[in-house]
């Protein structure tokens, strides 16, 4: 594991006159499991969109796997915070996971044997293989997140980017999903946005705290002072383990 998966250099982003991110520099080495925390509207989702190349920085530079984000896009797997689709859409779990293969094949015609094999592998890895024939609208929140994770894995990503992957599901399922991510991290660089520092610090190598600027990016440095800086309120001191 060497080289940097993601490199942000002095990145500033503004929606009109409102600066959402200011002078953010961050380097994510290949193989890292990085958590990003911060208050709502602190710029977390904007940061992910810059990495995905969906937004262009107002100033500064973003490189993904040494390339411009839009060029490296097919190497990324992405799980949005809010699914952009209607839950009652007539599509099965298997079909959704197979759409993860679309960027890697020509536009016309059907899926190949390798596409099906990768989709099956991804569903087995996320333990949703037995749901393959189910309509997407019949899944629980936790099952849906696993299916979307399978779709992201079917892309064969080098980097996995997750925006609040467990915000709508219960706590037991949350640990299951993070255990799964920890396993995947052996081969894939992972970036996860969360609101729950205490929980993710048990899993990630490093936490970046983002509130317009990057306040810190070391697990050990998070204490009551930093959290007060970050959220601006009187936050109860959180205990966290240093498992890495």
């Amino acid at each position: 594991m060497s080289g940097s998966a993601i490199a942000l250099d002095g990145v500033t982003f503004a929606y009109g006159a409102t600066r959402v991110l200011e002078d953010v520099s961050l380097e994510v080495p290949e193989g890292e499991f990085l958590g990003i925390v911060g208050p709502n509207a602190g710029g977390k989702s904007t940061l992910l969109k810059l990495i995905l190349g969906l937004l262009e920085p107002t100033a500064g530079r973003v490189r993904v796997l040494g390339r411009a984000p839009a060029e490296a896009r097919h190497e990324l797997g992405y799980l949005p915070q809010y699914p952009a689709f209607a839950r009652d859409f007539p599509v099965t779990v298997g079909q959704v996971v197979l759409t993860g293969r679309l960027g890697r094949r020509r536009l016309l015609g059907g899926y190949g044997a390798r596409d099906r094999e990768m989709a099956r592998w991804a569903m087995t890895r996320t333990e949703v293989a037995d749901l393959a024939g189910r309509r997407i609208g019949t899944l629980s929140g936790g099952q849906l997140q696993r299916v979307l994770l399978a779709r992201a894995l079917a892309c064969e990503p080098k980097i996995l980017i997750l925006d609040e992957p467990t915000s709508n599901i219960d706590q037991r399922v949350e640990s299951d999903i993070f255990d799964l991510l920890r396993g995947l991290n052996r081969h894939i660089t992972i970036l996860v946005v969360s609101h729950d520092i205490a929980f993710i610090s048990a899993y990630v190598h490093r936490v970046a705290c983002l509130n317009r600027t990057l306040i810190c990016h070391r697990t050990e440095a998070i204490d009551g002072g930093v959290i007060r800086d970050l959220y601006g309120g009187d936050v109860r001191r959180v205990a966290h383990s240093h498992s890495h």
Binding site: L52, L54, Y78, P80, P83, A84, T99, G100, L102
Partner: peptide, 9 residues
């Protein structure tokens, strides 16, 4: 189904 995902692919 999912325009954003299709665009990212």
């Amino acid at each position: 189904f999912d325009e954003e995902f299709a665009r990212l692919r």
